[in-house]
Nucleic acid binder design. Sequence first.
DNA 1: CGTCGTTTTGATGAGCCTCAAGGTGTGTGG
DNA 2: CCACACACCTTGAGGCTCATCAAAACGACG
Lengths: 247, 247
Amino acid sequence: MPDPLVRKLQRYGPLSDADRLWLAEALGTRRQVAARTDIVVEGEDPRAVNVVLDGWACRYKQLADGRRQIVSLILPGDPYDSNPFLHDRMDHAVCALTPVILAHVRGSAMQDLTARSPNLNEAFHRETLANASIQREWTVSLGCRTGIERLAHLFCEVFARLAVVGLTKDSTCSFPITQNDLADALGQTSVHINRTLQDLRAAGLITLRGRQLTLHDPDGLARLAYFDPAYLHFTVDEADLGALVRE
Amino acid sequence: MPDPLVRKLQRYGPLSDADRLWLAEALGTRRQVAARTDIVVEGEDPRAVNVVLDGWACRYKQLADGRRQIVSLILPGDPYDSNPFLHDRMDHAVCALTPVILAHVRGSAMQDLTARSPNLNEAFHRETLANASIQREWTVSLGCRTGIERLAHLFCEVFARLAVVGLTKDSTCSFPITQNDLADALGQTSVHINRTLQDLRAAGLITLRGRQLTLHDPDGLARLAYFDPAYLHFTVDEADLGALVRE
DNA sequence: CGTCGTTTTGATGAGCCTCAAGGTGTGTGG
DNA sequence: CCACACACCTTGAGGCTCATCAAAACGACG
């Protein structure tokens, strides 16, 4: 398994061979988690970091009456802090959307890592900032994009994020979540997601079949979605989705 | 002007007298900004921190066709990083919603501060995490709360955040933004906000007149909004809005 | 006293939800 | 190997929430 974490962090700035080595060492044993199960966290060191190496996960919150909102997607290569706060109860949950392979960097190891390598320190810091930025963009999507724009925007974002860790091929990537999950992420019902998907297909912009997403017209999709990848904050400038697909 | 920043940070953990003193020193000269003007940032040290001491501001993003989404509110006592990223262009803007008084802590001063005081370091860290949590909650609001729930939730959140910095009196606080701003924050039109406001008033839950918000039934409002203040992550446990009002 | 930003009201229609049922695919057990 | 179950996707009909457009009332301020 080529390490998606390294690929990810590299997009925020250069890493030395030593950095890569240290990072590989710090990643402890891998753990398998089944789809549709919460990734629970035993009493957790706030400095520790978990990483999804394979599969998709999400953060979600649930209202008392059962309504669920997926507030972010966690893709291969994404580190995530499982602990929102030291003394507080968890205010949201993390859940595997597909079978997931996790690695865990202990708090002490993490501290060593960032102390030894300014590059890694910087990269992790940027990761945090980029996540905040993505969260803001989701707020924008839910606040002022229409149904079809939201869906198109999510496809653009996911494709771009997967491209960065080398998980796209031509204009295709894996897209293994259900329409129900999409609905919970985009603030709509699965029925309506289904209809909107058909519109996108009819417009010749994408196909989504058998957990595979293909972008037939990345630029058109980005235009429809008002997608501007700047908010992803990768330093290497991949100006547009088209470039990602062409590469 | 009693310092709302100190009051805010104290809610994340205890501060010593020395902490308070250092912090007061670090806050440089104050700056006035007129309402409805962007708070622009000259080439900015990424470690620097700005603080709103008085007035309300917001972060917003705008789509190419003009649609605006307010992604967060910045209230008195809220520190905010003006720099999303060092080398990147700004991916969102910060704007004064009312006349605002700002203070600025230079990067070097900030570094001294956190190096000298573990308390302050911890408090600022928690502030960052709390902000991320608030952003997630906004995602939930936009994704799965109805119009009236959204509005009620925002009122609860704002009241709780203002209570923490001592800016509420009985069950009343200042609420100086227009229905248009509310609309841009909650992903609706001002027309519909207006009608929803009337519903809240008719239900006897609030009054909002002359920039003053009064909660007549905080518990009822919280119930309607599915408001659970845990996501604000103040360490002192003010279990519910009611307690805030009664105090 | 007039101007301008803000709030309020009305009428109409689009977007999305709800409920309900039928279709498709995949894995499982007999 | 077939039959069944179950999860997921798809389709239809009807209704509610909210947007849009337009205009009137209100209020603060010069």
